[in-house]
Design a binder for these strands. Structure first.
Lengths: 225, 225
DNA sequence: CGGGCTATTGATTCCAGTCAATACTCGTGG
DNA sequence: CCACGAGTATTGACTGGAATCAATAGCCCG
């Protein structure tokens, strides 16, 4: 695999298993950036700086496909579709990270955990596993780091979802009970208003303060190449 | 330019001027993703989904270079360095967004605003403008959206930096007085301990709870292509 | 001048972080 | 086998930082 700062030369594709990629800040704290699993690509961040800026750690037995970057470039010379696939994958990563930024910037703890569960559920479904019942491969601490929350908040939120009938939780084992509510959740009713094992759906709290899209206020000069 | 959902066909390079790129969520709230300026590329998010997932808005008069994606791909066939440059730029964007994620996930409001100012200062320097005195092209609201803060918090933080002698603020005009402190700042002393126009540097609050890097706990199977 | 957008500042609320105690899981060795 | 300890998870009490609500002022442009 690779560690931070190591010279970049190869990309990685997950054939099977689960990993995390992490960034280590100037104080040694680690921040989880992604949880690659089957079909996911990582190591791309090394292309620009010639060194990996993040580090991958296996969370289970893993089977990886190594993709030496130079060799890949050569293949791209003769197989245009490969090249386009790479652009596409990198673009997808970019969009995914945009989603992360938008989530971290705007959503409550509950909404983040809900999204995380939905996303996991969908990814497991894509891989042919059950989307309704699965085991987390990562700790609460790692989930928290990924979502910009503390492990206690993650734990509490999962417990609240459980109380609320949206999921079942037993340690690492998660059962999805009400995917729709998880999908659309913004905020849970206050705990004072919760009844044990309540089965009614989470209502929208409809945050709002909506702003119309700002119009252009600058002129535009364009030139094609 | 382009709007969200519009079919993707061209990339954009900023020749001069300032823009913002925004994501619009399901309630119409806009989230600022970046502030492209001279030399920056945007529109890349469209490659994967064939549609732009974000939207660019000019914050001043702008001069853009259009780069039709198909034409670019053709040029790449004959000019290998172009192709590599594109990988590099996309990789750079990926690293930048990783930095955003890590910032939003871990840093205080003060640290975010400080980083934002340092980054602006460096980018202005790169463009040949003054790194010590410049005008913001965006509102407090847009800065807040970009940093995952409210406009009030941005305003208060700038005022605090001013009181503290780190910067001068007059509406959109920012003067950088103590770049080093901005660079290394984690947390300001409590306001009760502040004196007007204090000139002493912000000290490190040294957050810590450092975690060692977790070791692999999975076996690894690798295969080269 | 007046109206709309932008910015500053104050008062208050509340969500998530921190600190802390306890329990569950699992592997290791007496 | 059970005890022990380390890592992980749950839950409670409390705190604090940023959001929210609100009032005022500055700026720009018709």
């Amino acid at each position: 695999m690779h560690t931070i700062g190591q010279p970049f030369d190869t990309l990685f594709i997950v054939h099977s298993g689960f990993l995390k990629t992490v960034l280590i800040d100037e104080f040694g704290n680690e921040q989880v950036l992604s949880f690659p699993m089957k079909g996911d690509l990582f190591g791309v961040d090394g292309i620009h700086t010639k060194r990996y800026s993040s580090e991958a750690v296996a969370l289970s037995n893993c089977d990886l496909i190594l993709l030496p970057f130079k060799k890949f470039i050569q293949l791209g010379r003769t197989h245009a579709e490969l090249e386009h696939a790479m652009y596409s994958v990198m673009s997808r990563e970019l969009v995914r990270e945009q989603g992360m930024v938008s989530m971290l910037g705007a959503l409550s703890a509950e909404a983040r955990v809900a999204r995380f569960l939905v996303s996991l559920s969908e990814r497991f479904a894509d891989m042919g596993y059950s989307s309704k019942l699965f085991n987390l491969r990562m700790t609460r601490h790692e989930i928290g780091s990924y979502l910009g929350l503390t492990l206690e908040t993650v734990s509490r939120t999962l417990s609240a979802f459980n109380e609320f009938g949206l999921i079942t939780v037993d340690q690492r084992s998660i059962g999805i009970k009400d995917l729709d509510s998880l999908r659309t959740l913004r905020r849970l009713p206050p705990s004072s208003a919760r009844s044990k094992q309540a089965s009614k759906k989470a209502r929208e709290a409809a945050a709002l303060s909506r702003n119309g899209v700002t119009d252009n206020d600058g002129d535009l000069q364009v030139a094609a190449v």
